[in-house]
Write a protein that binds this DNA or RNA. Structure first.
Length: 494
RNA sequence: CGGGGUGUAGCACAGUCCGGUUAGCGCGCCACGUUCGGGACGUGGAGGUCGGAAGUUCGAAUCUUCUCACCCCGACCA
């Protein structure tokens, strides 16, 4: 069968191939003709739209508004903040010309050398610079603050190696950029938004995350502090799933954005930026999928319930579909999205496998026996269990079941994640656990970039974050033996 | 950007070493029929500049040179 997914346990070496296979076969995305860029297919995009809508509503609740800034950034803007240019310069796509012409040799078209731009334009890898150049004109007084803008956009980072959803040359994301009158207010904003991300990951994606601060060397280029949510995938590797940065006054100083405060004095504006991307799709896929395919949490499933008729002959099909439409109407009235698959050219068993591959949370099958007995066969994607239930009251039953599935998927991911957090107290133990088990390691660290670097070089594990809820615990660094006030979170990561 | 590998139908591949009819298999696709409570089967059919360019040869998917693209492993990163 062409649709058949390769059998694989998640920890095998070829997990990445299994993941790729799944993304393609479930109809989410595929590689495009353009190097490192992907095509997001309708089913994948439908999931992304659900994520986007849910996040957007959360941003609005927290007082944010949407705006849009240019795709192109003059090269000179990017060089204004030293750390920022250092971080992004190596992976920028650059526009150098604005016109093509017919090849004088007659071979298609060539870049017209006459049309060279005086100043090259960078395709945004992130929008801090263009936005702060704009904010400069918006801000004069403390009365103009805060500015709480978000934009939904695409960005380009010319990565050496790409993987569907996890790292593509072009990706979709949202980026919030806020300006504040005080340091404290900006810090609170950055913390508020990482909490929004954590809530979204857990309540919508059913993906448990650990919130924490990045170490200095993992921090966003140009930030004073980076907050992150870290999720754990089923192969034991971590995925940075969203970040929220306290930018201090770095961009305000680079773009000379000053305002008059209540006391009548000039001061630089305090800033944050925060973003999540289509990488969340990767997190969603890798956190829950099994050998039958995707497992989607009901809140993000484009189709929450699929109905498959089981029949002989078109008369019977029509009869069953008529009954299904009645049930579908009841479900839709409760806000449940339903698809009736009445295709006659594929058999029911094929449909079952197909919707499992696509991760549809609940499946109803109705055949002649059910029609006679007033029952349906109800199957859950998360547990792969089936039950015969009465048609009476089915809509309310399913509505409640969807919430249960949502919760169950989260609980399963949480149990796995909790089992994959290991406290280690020596470097030998660190290496052993990393090798044999993977997952998150909680260990003492002396706080120096040198130690972090050594661990990274020797084991490929990095500090994912210093968890915000890490309890104070006196200990000694697993490398240097120097004192440490709390454990930090290590893992191999994507 | 280093080290490996692969380009042949929508997909996955055989054929290439050792040149020789009209380039082949499976899946998918189209038509008809039989089926239908977990990925059906039969019969017939359509679909190819063998990644591209140049060369060697009576003759190139196959040999030579150049080139492009993609995949995997590193370094880099949401």
């Amino acid at each position: 069968m062409a649709k058949e997914l390769k059998e694989l346990t998640p920890r095998e070496e070829s997990y990445s191939q299994w993941y790729n296979d799944l993304v393609v076969k479930a109809g989410l995305a595929e590689n495009s003709a353009v190097r490192g860029c992907m095509v997001i297919k309708p089913y994948g995009y439908a999931i992304w739209e659900k994520m986007r809508d849910a996040l957007d509503a959360m941003f609005k609740e927290t007082g944010h508004v949407n705006a849009y800034f240019p795709l192109f950034i003059p090269k000179s803007f990017l060089s204004k903040e030293a750390a920022h240019v250092e971080g992004f310069a190596k992976e920028c796509a650059v526009v150098t010309h604005y016109r093509l012409k017919n090849d004088p040799q007659g071979k298609g078209v060539v870049v017209d050398p006459e049309a060279k731009l005086e100043e090259e334009l960078i395709v945004r890898p992130t929008s801090e610079t263009i936005i702060w150049n704009t904010y400069k004109n918006w801000i004069q007084s403390y009365r103009d603050l805060p500015i709480l803008c978000n934009q939904w956009a695409n960005v380009v980072r010319w990565e050496m190696r790409t993987r569907l959803f996890l790292r593509t040359a072009e990706f979709l994301w949202q980026e919030g950029h806020t300006a504040h009158a005080t340091r404290q207010e900006a810090i609170e904003e950055a913390e508020r938004m990482i909490q929004v991300y954590a809530r979204f990951a857990q309540e919508w994606m059913s993906v448990p995350v650990i919130i924490g601060h990045k170490s200095e060397s993992e921090r966003f280029a140009g930030a004073d502090d980076t907050l992150t949510i870290e999720a754990l995938m089923q192969d034991g590797k971590a995925l940075q799933s969203g970040t929220s940065h306290f930018l201090g006054q770095n961009f305000a100083k680079a773009f000379d954005v000053q305002f008059t405060n209540k006391e009548g004095q000039l001061d630089y504006v305090w800033a944050t930026s925060w973003g999540v991307s289509t990488r969340l799709m990767g997190a969603l896929i890798m956190a829950h999928s099994d050998n039958n395919g995707l497992v989607l949490p009901p809140k993000l499933a484009p189709i929450q319930v699929v109905m498959v008729p089981i029949y002989k002959g078109l008369d019977e099909l029509a009869q069953i579909v008529a009954r299904m439409e009645e049930i579908a109407a009841e479900l839709k009235a409760l806000g449940v999205s339903v698809k009736i698959d009445d295709r006659d050219h594929v058999r029911s068993g094929f449909k079952f496998a197909e919707y499992e591959l696509k991760g549809v949370p609940v499946r109803l099958a109705i055949g002649p026996r059910d029609l006679a007995g007033g029952t349906v066969e109800l199957a859950r994607r998360d547990t792969l269990t089936k039950a015969i239930v009465p048609q009476a009251g089915i809509a309310a039953h399913i509505r409640a079941l969807l919430d249960e599935v949502q919760q169950n998927i989260f609980q399963k991911a949480l149990d796995y994640r909790q089992g994959m957090i290991t406290r280690v107290d020596s470097y030998d133990q660190f290496k052993q656990v990393l090798e044999e088990k993977g997952g998150f390691l909680l260990a003492h660290w002396d706080g120096t970039p040198e130690t972090e670097e050594q661990i990274k070089n020797e084991t490929k594990a990095t500090i994912r974050c210093i968890p915000v809820d890490a309890p104070d615990e006196a200990g000694s660094c697993i490398i240097s033996g120097k004192p440490s006030a709390r454990r930090v979170l290590f893992a191999k990561s994507y």
